[in-house]
Computed example of a mutant assay.
Amino acid sequence: MTRPSRPARVLASALAAGTLLATAACADESGTPEASTVSPAAERSPAPSATPALTGAGAQAALITPADIEDDWQLANDAATWRNTMLVGKVDVAQFLTAKADAADCQRLLDGLYSDSLLGRTTGASGLRGFTSEDSRLLYQVGDYGSANLNATLDWLKSLPEKCNQFTATAADGSPRTVQVVEYKEPPKVGDALAALTVTVQGTSNGQPAKTTLDVTVFRVGASGAAVTNGGLSGVDHDSTVLALQNGAQRLKDVLSGKTPAPLPSQFD
């Protein structure tokens, strides 16, 4: 079917409109534009950053206190120098028959836990605080790491229960250590994103059988994040991990929104 041609008056109108538009963009005889068009986008000021950067004072204010985790936790003065020798070991690569690259992830986990560097390097301010209760330790770290880096760390941690479910590492004295990595079941929903594991290491310490269990959790709020590592030779108190996550996330949110965290934590049901 042949499409009918447009009436001549329609084409004439379109040509006239095009001529008017072209004329409006031209300069008058004095060289001054007769009209200028500014796009709405150019008139708008740049959008503010979605999440403010964490300052040094803010990082310290975002750190949890003994009141946030309750029970018998005491503030420690030497948390920055803590090193758990049960986490020292060289992963047996031969166990990873079909995925040797996974061995590198397992080694990174052990090394990161030993050196308290799971979150990597900060891009801004950071803070660290430790607590002790009998033979258990709880370490809380907070800092500005960048959202992309934190998301990559969270994705990596979430992959470990499959990659590193159980493996053997050789201690400095040549003795074997069995490491198990499982998903932390039903962690509290905090921050913008969260990864939660429970890591168990069995072997010997000073020639005696030993077993240490740790909750290893990381969450992100904007470009800032925090890590909670909690446990020891007597096992792990999951309730303290939950409180550290809940109250820590609230403190970080308050600081990033310009508020002062409450001296006492909120009560969670």
Results as ranks from 00 to 15, higher is better:
residue 126 S to H: 05
residue 161 P to L: 02
residue 37 T to P: 03
residue 5 S to C: 11
residue 147 S to M: 04
residue 47 A to G: 13
residue 12 A to S: 03
residue 169 A to T: 12
residue 92 D to A: 12
residue 54 L to E: 10
residue 78 D to E: 09
residue 253 K to P: 04
residue 202 Q to N: 15
residue 180 Q to K: 13
residue 205 S to G: 11
residue 76 A to Q: 09
residue 89 G to A: 06
residue 79 A to W: 12
residue 32 T to I: 07
residue 201 V to Y: 01
residue 135 D to L: 07
residue 220 R to C: 07
residue 148 A to H: 13
residue 2 T to M: 08
residue 172 A to E: 05
residue 86 M to C: 10
residue 180 Q to F: 13
residue 77 N to G: 09
residue 120 G to N: 06
residue 166 Q to L: 13
residue 147 S to T: 04
residue 32 T to D: 05
residue 32 T to W: 07
residue 27 A to T: 05
residue 249 A to R: 03
residue 104 A to V: 01
residue 115 S to E: 14
residue 50 A to V: 03
residue 25 A to I: 12
residue 155 D to I: 08
residue 210 A to W: 00
residue 116 D to M: 10
residue 141 Q to F: 12
residue 39 S to H: 10
residue 88 V to P: 04
residue 3 R to Q: 13
residue 234 S to M: 02
residue 149 N to H: 14
residue 256 L to R: 02
residue 89 G to T: 02
residue 40 P to A: 08
residue 16 A to E: 02
residue 265 P to D: 14
residue 206 N to G: 12
residue 197 L to H: 01
residue 92 D to G: 09
residue 19 T to I: 09
residue 61 A to W: 00
residue 21 L to D: 11
residue 208 Q to A: 06
residue 32 T to S: 10
residue 246 Q to W: 02
residue 136 S to G: 09
residue 168 T to N: 12
residue 131 F to D: 07
residue 65 T to M: 13
residue 44 R to P: 15
residue 67 A to P: 08
residue 40 P to D: 04
residue 182 V to D: 15
residue 23 T to W: 14
residue 261 P to M: 10
residue 175 S to E: 07
residue 227 A to K: 03
residue 152 A to N: 08
residue 231 G to E: 01
residue 252 L to W: 01
residue 196 A to C: 14
residue 169 A to C: 13
residue 131 F to H: 14
residue 34 E to C: 15
residue 233 L to E: 08
residue 2 T to H: 06
residue 215 D to R: 01
residue 237 D to P: 03
residue 242 V to S: 12
residue 260 T to H: 00
